[in-house]
Amino acid sequence: MVRSAIMVATARPAGLFVLGLGAAALGVAVYALDRPVGSIAFLPAGLVFDSGILGPFGGPLPTFIHAMAFSLMTAALLAPTLYARLAACGVWVAANWLFEAAQHPAFTEMTGIGMPGTFDPLDMVAAPLGAALAFLFMQGVAALERIRT
């Protein structure tokens, strides 16, 4: 099933992937602009401005962008079907939810595993919203392709 989906996708344009890469770059830019040094492991201190300019949006925005960016990049590598698009979005919502839920004190109590960070319900909302926007982009690109052919 996955194999055939991937094979069908070989003819897929790179547009979605480039869009996803752009969104990921935007996510890094949010960290550089808004967060203090050390908030993201691979970003050098000289590129971090810690402006706090995004205010309350600065918290959930990276999760929103993450779910969107990686849904787009994943969908670009799968077959151009509705099922594949939904699966790509679902996987990244689930991943973001899982890591966010792992920061909840109840998770640590149940499993004994502590994840760094603080559970934020806004992140639980931001992930599906980001994936939903990605899905709209995917549907838009798919519609354009149908028109072209």
Binding site: I6, A9, T10, A24, G27, Y31, D34, R35, P36, G38, S39, I40, A41, F42, G58, G59, P62, H66, F70, M73, T74, L77, L78, W92, A95, N96, F99, Q103, P116, G117, T118, D120
Partner: peptide, 24 residues
Amino acid sequence: FRRLALGVVFAAGIASIMSTSPPP
């Protein structure tokens, strides 16, 4: 290569979640 790219995207996605810390 497409399978490899999928693996890379998935690994990068998980790594990017794990490499960030919450906002102050």
